[in-house]
């Protein structure tokens, strides 16, 4: 127990806890966007984009987070353009971009002689490796997410409900769609550093799936998903420290364990 408490006093561990709490509280809200806008394929593509960013940053010895953010934004804009200008749907555009990013990552690794093992470290992430600049970026993004949802809740709910109806209500559907996709790109770039590519769903999607089992409204879904996300990320992180296990795996496992717990809905 003393070791556990001592570990929490260490700066990287404390920074990690803070980051997990912020991410756990804010990121599930974008998971709602991923699920409702049917952006699962795009999420995979962005995860591959981060691997390309990792390869580039190792090759050029520059900040991974900055490259990931820039690259993900470029990929999202490219995909939106592809979807708009061609007969490709969002899914097909994502698949195309996914193949492109992995091919580009393998070329970068080959040309600059980047060890594949180092790049693939990104698949696992580490909340202990965060700098204060990462925390600052996380806080800024969390504030943007919360403010956006708070200020545009009516529009978001209409777009989630039915984009044609939102459009008939005079809402700027394309603008908000692009904004939400951009938010997701930024969230994935940051979440990769926390949990890694493989376990990102533990923070983004699983809290939403758990919350959706009981929610009757979008507001309830958003609030419940964020509370569950906060619980899973902080409790999972502390559990990982206590048991000396990797945080990403522990958090993902905790999410997966919570999901099948039965919930009781009022009968009508």
């Amino acid at each position: 127990m003393n070791d556990f408490l001592f570990a929490l006093t260490l700066a990287p561990v404390a920074r990690g806890l803070l980051a997990m709490a912020i991410a756990g509280l804010a990121f599930p809200a974008t998971g709602v966007m991923v699920l409702r806008l049917n952006l699962i394929p795009m999420r995979y593509m962005l995860m591959h984009g981060v691997i390309l960013a990792g390869a580039i940053s190792l090759a050029l010895n520059v900040n991974t987070l900055a490259i990931s953010v820039v690259l993900n934004l470029i990929l999202v804009l490219l995909m939106l353009k592809l979807t708009k200008d061609t007969r490709f749907g969002f899914g097909l555009s994502s698949a195309t971009a996914m193949v492109f990013t992995m091919a580009a990552a393998s070329l970068v690794m080959h040309i600059w002689d980047v060890p594949a093992k180092d790049t693939l470290q990104l698949l696992w992430g580490s909340p202990f490796a965060l700098a204060w600049t990462d925390i600052a970026a996380l806080v800024a993004l969390a504030i943007v997410i919360v403010l956006y949802i708070f200020m545009s809740f009516r529009t978001i709910s209409a777009i989630f409900f039915d984009q044609e109806i939102a459009s008939s209500l005079g809402m700027r559907v394309r603008f908000h769609h692009t904004f939400m996709v951009t938010l997701i790109a930024l969230v994935i770039a940051l979440a990769m550093k926390l949990l890694g590519a493989l376990l990102i769903d533990a923070l983004l999607i699983l809290p939403v799936l758990v919350a959706s089992k009981r929610s009757e409204s979008l507001k309830q879904l958003m609030v419940s998903a964020c509370i569950i996300g906060l619980f899973v990320s902080t409790f999972g992180y502390l559990l990982a420290i206590y048991t000396d296990m990797p945080p990403s795996g522990t958090i993902a496992l905790l999410s997966a364990v919570i999901y099948p717990i039965p919930t009781f809905k009022k009968r009508r």
């Binding site: 409702r36 009516r154 709910s157 209409a158 409900f161 939102a166 959706s212 409204s217 979008l218 309830q220």
Partner: peptide, 16 residues
């Protein structure tokens, strides 16, 4: 299948 309440459906149409 998506949680959006009847109130939210009506509220999305009100003059902001």
């Amino acid at each position: 299948q998506f949680p959006v309440s009847a109130h939210e459906v009506v509220a999305m149409a009100v003059d902001p």
